[in-house]
Simulated scan of single mutants.
Amino acid sequence: MTGANRGTGRAIRQRLTADGFTVRCLNRHSCEDHTDRIVADLTDTRAAFDATRAVLADVPALDLLVLNAVTRGLGRVAELDPAVWDEALAVNLTANVRVVQAALPALRAAGGHIVLMGSHAGDRPFEGGLAYCATKAALRSVAEVLLMEERPNGVRTTLLNPGAIRNFDDDFSENKMSVESVASVVSWVVSAPADTVLGEVELRPARLGVPPAVGLERLQHV
C-alpha cells in the first residue's frame, strides 16, 4: 500500500489490518504507528519501481494493492510552478504505473485486486487545480486499461473516487466524509464476490452544503 502514513491512507491501512490483511507500506515518509520496511521518494519513478520490488521480494503472491499516495499542489495555470506540475505528474500518475508494473507478477499469482484512489477532481475540474485534476483524470484511463488488460490474468482493478474527506485531525466539517468511512468502502470493494469487479465507485458526503450559486445562476459558474 502507498500513502498509508496519515489521513485516509492510515485509516485504510488500519481497516485492512483489522480485516485480516498483512499490510506492507511504501510511503514517502515513514509511518509513526507502523513498521515501514522501505521508504521511497515517489517523485523518482525508478525508485518507486525498485522499492516495490524490494517490499515484495519475499511475497510470491499479492492479494491486494492499494495506491493512495498523492500530492495536492495547487496553482492557476498562469502562475503554476513547474515543480508543482512535475511532482503531481510523478506522484499521482507515473509512480502508480511503476508500482503496478513491479507488483503485477505477484498480483497475477494471487488473482489479486488493485484499488486506485482517484478523486471527484478527475471529472470535476476546478480553478487552481490543474496539476491535481489532470493527474486524477489520467488515473481513470490507467484504471480502465488495467481492467481490460489484466482481467484475463485474474487481476481486478477498482477506481475509487471520493469527494470531500476530513483528512486532517482539526477538520470537523459535517459536509465531508470521515477517513474511517472511506476505509470502510475500500473494505467493501475488496470483499466483492470473486466473479465480479467494481470498476469505478464514486463516494459523496451524505450532507451537502450550500453551493456558491444555484438554479439558473449556476450557469454563470460553469
Rank of each mutant, 00 (worst) to 15 (best):
H29D: 01
C31H: 07
V39I: 15
R28S: 01
R37M: 13
T52I: 07
R28W: 02
E32C: 02
T43C: 13
A48S: 04
A48K: 08
R37D: 07
D33Y: 00
R28E: 05
A51I: 09
R46I: 15
I38Q: 05
V55I: 12
T43F: 12
R53W: 11
A54D: 14
D44S: 10
H29T: 08
T52V: 10
C31A: 11
F49L: 15
D44E: 09
L26T: 09
D44K: 14
R46K: 14
D44F: 10
D44Q: 03
R37N: 04
I38F: 01
D50T: 11
I38N: 05
T52G: 04
A54N: 14
I38Y: 06
H34N: 06
T35C: 11
A54K: 12
A54S: 14
A54Y: 02
D50G: 09
R28P: 08
T35N: 07
T35P: 07
V39F: 03
T45N: 12
T52H: 01
D36F: 00
E32D: 09
I38G: 08
D41K: 13
L42W: 09
R37Y: 02
T52R: 06
D50F: 15
C31I: 00
D50M: 11
D36G: 00
L26P: 08
R53K: 14
H29N: 10
D50Y: 13
S30Q: 12
L42Q: 03
R53T: 15
L42M: 07
T35A: 05
T43R: 15
A54F: 08
E32I: 00
D41Q: 10
T45M: 14
H29V: 04
D44T: 09
D41W: 07
D50S: 14
D36P: 00
R46A: 13
D33A: 00
R37C: 02
A40Y: 07
A47Q: 06
T35Y: 07
E32R: 11
H29C: 04
H34C: 05
T52A: 02
F49W: 11
R28L: 03
E32N: 13
L42Y: 07
S30C: 01
H29F: 05
S30P: 14
D50L: 08
E32Q: 13
T52L: 09
A51K: 06
R28N: 06
L26G: 06
A51Y: 02
T52C: 10
A47R: 15
D33Q: 00
V55C: 08
T43I: 02
T45A: 07
D41S: 08
H29Y: 10
V39P: 12
R46C: 10
L42R: 03
A40G: 03
R46M: 08
D44L: 11
F49C: 12
A51L: 12
C31K: 01
A48E: 04
T52W: 03
R28F: 01
A47K: 14
A48N: 05
R53S: 11
V39M: 13
I38C: 06
T43A: 13
T43K: 13
